[in-house]
Amino acid sequence: MSEFAIEARGLVKQFGSTRAVDGVDLAVGPGRVLGLLGPNGAGKTTIVRILATLTRPDSGSATVADHDVVTEADQVRSRIGLTGQFASVDNRLTGFENLLLIGRLLGQSRRDARQGARTLLARFELAGAADRPVQGYSGGMRRRLDLAASLVGKPRILFLDEPTTGLDPRARRQLWNLIGELVTAGTTVLLTTQYLEEADALAEDILVIDHGRVIARGSPDELKARIGTRTLVVRPASPSAVETVSRVMTELTGSQPERQGGRLSVPANDPDLLSALVRRLDELEIALAELLLRSASLDEVFLALTGQRVESEQDQPQVES
């Protein structure tokens, strides 16, 4: 018996000339939540697919619930739930029929499958839409149904690949709450995300992935200490003041702000920083056109960890506070 619910050593997967996964080690203790954080194309989905028995690694090995994902795939499959990157529910069935079918495929009696489906639909706030075809569901409803479908077999281990990508903030919160409840109930979760905020909200341990490699690992607090979770953004009303403001920001935060046009941004962890800055600039009689504190974007995480920007174009949610 391993002390880990999920354990992988030296995973490698190559597609043509792309090394999608390049020597990844990871371990998730029972009942814990690991977040894989990385940009598009980092290899997150491929790692999940290997662990969920959908793809064989070229080298390395992994066990899930003490069973090897390659040689004991069937034992692994009966112990996991998987919610893929794109909601994979049947659009032409109703929500109820989707869950009923999964229950039947898992060997539940007709009665148990029906009952289980209704219970899950109620818990995921889909009872009202249960008998409507999934075609007409919103993105958030579809995601919730997808998650519910992964839970029909009551798995102790759950894989969630970008569970909230493409959802609006409200639907995202709702899904976070549902995932939180599962974790409280003791489910082991491995999830992937492109959002630091999401990894912070859900995961106890985070692996930062880039180009198929783990470039940083730690608890959200450890990573935040290295990265700075928030970014202070300042734009003086007059461009001639940019130099002075930049100097003040360096003094207060200890790091050189980044400059984009007339706008300066710097990682900021100290909650008193904002008022300190306002006071200093007031003394210097510098007027500001813009002043805000926002969550660090993935781009900034990568900049802090690797000194490089994320290569791929992507939409990053800028949650302003």
Binding site: R77, S78, L82, F86, A87, S88, I102, L105, L106
Partner: peptide, 13 residues
């Protein structure tokens, strides 16, 4: 193409 096949493959089907 929809990923439904993967869902089935990740289950003991």
């Amino acid at each position: 193409t929809s990923g439904y096949f993967d869902r089935l493959r990740a289950m003991p089907v």
